[in-house]
Design a protein around this nucleic acid. Sequence first.
RNA 1: GCGGACGUGGCGAAACUGGUAGACGCAAGGGACUUAAAAUCCCUCGACCUCGGUCAUGCGGGUUCGAUCCCCGCCGUCCGCACCA
Length: 876
Amino acid sequence: MASERYNPRDAEPRWQKIWSEAKVFETDNADPREKYYVLEMFPYPSGRIHMGHVRNYAMGDVVARYKRARGYNVLHPMGWDAFGMPAENAARDNKVHPKEWTYQNIASMKAQLKAMGLSLDWSREFATCDVDYYHRQQHLFLDMMEKGLVYRKLSKVNWDPVDHTVLANEQVIDGRGWRSGALVEQRELVQWFFKITDFSQDLLDALDTLDQWPEKVRLMQKNWIGRSEGMTIRWELVAETVPAGQSEVTVYTTRPDTLFGASFLAIAADHPLAREAAAANPAIEAFADECRRHGTSLAALETAEKKGMDTGIRVRHPLDPSWELPVYIANFVLMDYGTGAIFGCPSGDQRDLDFARKYDLPVVPVVMPAGDDAGNFTIGDTAYDGDGVMINSRFLDGLSTEEAFETVARRLSETMLGNKPQGERKVNFRLRDWGISRQRYWGCPIPVIHCEVCGVVPVPKKDLPVRLPDDVTFDQPGNPLDRHATWRHVACPQCGGDARRETDTMDTFVDSSWYFTRFTAPWQDEPTDPKAANHWLPVDQYIGGIEHAILHLLYSRFFTRAMKETGHVEVKEPFKGLFTQGMVVHETYRRGSGPSGEWVAPADIRIEETDGRRRATLLATGEEIAIGSIEKMSKSKKNVVDPDDIIASYGADTARFFVLSDSPPDRDVIWSEAGVEGAHRFTQRLWRLISEAADNLKGVAPAPAREGEALAVSQIAHRTLKAVQDDYDKLSFNKAVARIYELVNALAAPLARVAAGEGDAVFRGAVREAAEILVQIVAPMTPHLAEECWAALGNGRMLAQAAWPRYDDALVVENEIMLPVQINGKKRAELTIARDAEQDAVQAAVLQLDAVRSALDGRQPKKIILVPQRIVNIVV
RNA sequence: GCGGACGUGGCGAAACUGGUAGACGCAAGGGACUUAAAAUCCCUCGACCUCGGUCAUGCGGGUUCGAUCCCCGCCGUCCGCACCA
């Protein structure tokens, strides 16, 4: 009898080797079975995996193994999101080349992932910094350029004057560069853009088709795209008030109905009219400069006072040319939304109201809530921005907001100013084009050449790839490609004259916008093999963190559309199913009291519970340590648990099982030592129960019992099988875990009886079948342990290649059911009765129950509610 | 400010489409085995009392035979966006 403890240190590497040698997880594109593509967001090779990776990849692996067992041809690949700034920072700080640093990190992380026993097709692995990959990305860029999906424009960037580099908005903290601490300047640089706004409407509309995405993510994308319906309205300038030649200004509004409430126009500091006014008046120029300086810093925006300055320019109201309004430059008007100019209606917009109070402009109420009395309706400190009835609006009076909108829209589109309509309906989006230029070394080079004579010339495809040079230095700030001695000097592909390479590289979000497509045929010379891509895409189940809800997922949706337009794929939505998993969180510990104490790692302390109070003490000294809040694992708070340590002491299966237990997968899971030990106890218990009975189960044909004492064994096995299947289909891993515990609890006694040599042939057959079902349904979560049990039962073929068991409906259905019996809505009794009993028979049986008879006390019930196979409620 | 989600025992959580609230796990308490410990096994475990009940799903109402679930109003926590005209 094999009753030793299960030893993952022995079993796990052994099975990993067996799987790998048999290539069981390598996927053939030509396999005729139905396809299933499961993908977890690929990692950045920082050097070590963390618990978040473990949870993410454990979930994906359960899906992959489950679907594989269900008979699908499963694609489950892995790669590396390998370009990016940390490699350059490491180069600068540690004098190691970004390439070397990155590939070393990949090697060690790959070893860690392998130790988890994931069912990945490693034959398709690539890193985005592989020349083979960015070569094809450059190819895609050129194709997109040809289709007009790429352009250059002068644009504002956050410039760090110390590091000589552009910073992303996230890298600007309180107006300062995150590394240098220098005050960030706004600079204008010519940058490359992808025309994602060409797809604004489609990206918005298609969200409705993504019914296997979380509602939350769809909503976030919807808000990010930010569609609004309104009008552009042209206002005639009063000629004698304008310093130079302009004759009109166009505003964008979503509320043309409130036009009679207008009391001023406000324009952005960068608006052409503002520039004109500034040129003629130093005071205006000074104010415009001040507005520009305050630009983007988030903190500044929050507290910034609404400020404006009258330009002296006047406009005529579009519905009454005799009505003149002032034009202000205002610090809250954005040049890059709408037209950079608005009309202010103080009664209908809080910000306009504040502005009007400050500069003493008229406040005319034009919309009042339906049912209010026009005589009494006034605006105090709060604007009314809801719908209602028009007042003080001449020919609009009495109309609803909506009717007024339509009336004004019609009137302005029919009125001419010069030879164009005065106003037009216009849909606006908040979504901006995607700026992809980065002044960095460690990214995909943008494959274009600048020629004095020919202008911007794309690199001919035959000259691809544009390789990153290896001999670069990081001892000075700025982009190493810019100061490389030779790399940037190149002959113009068109005229052959001296020309200059583009030294910008692409945003790393470009790399991650199509890697899932490349996985379908990573060996292909072209960016894709369209046949393979169209076969595999969309990804059936994509799993990753909610932090990518907008950027990565939106960019990927755009990029797939762009690849469709350039003929590389036929689909436009890359991810059919999306699941956003929660984080792994942990208690924090710090020395002393108060918020200044030094953080302490969980590995350095011991936790004890006495009299219901948990205390933490430092292992080394016994000093008491304060237990703090539960937070996302992070190095700075030292509340990290290294997956390697867990795998070394408990094994990968325990780690996988634990991160899937307890918490629903989209919520945070709290890592705790006690919880891990619980999971580990489970693995040991399962092994003990199976291995001790194994000798007496070998050679027994698995067969469900149809009657007698073993029937219950077969019933719970089949019922659990069905339930776990449903749970896996819904990614409800925590519920699957609970059901598997129930099954183990139920099988403990029968397995012990078999181990003791008891039970007849029918019983053993039923127990064997139940044990196999148990092992198979737990296998996606704890694959090594399951293989070990499977082998112990004498099964020759490896479990990874076994088909999923089938449940028998006859064993799932309950023949006798227990009906709760309520009296006046409170449970008073139970009735056990045949499942298919007639309603009359049920009612008769219920009325015979002692509890019912004493409650009725001879009277007739007022009402009897019989919900078949659910509940009975008697109203007395 | 706008938008969204969530709130159930000491803790993580279950509960189908409105139908037995608390499955399963953790922690805790008691017991068995043991020279002892570990491991393992068994029992108890929402609150209160008169042991039959009563009260319990953030709070207050409503709809219903019946509400964790639906509706209205509060309170709290978390997340996203944030001068978007």
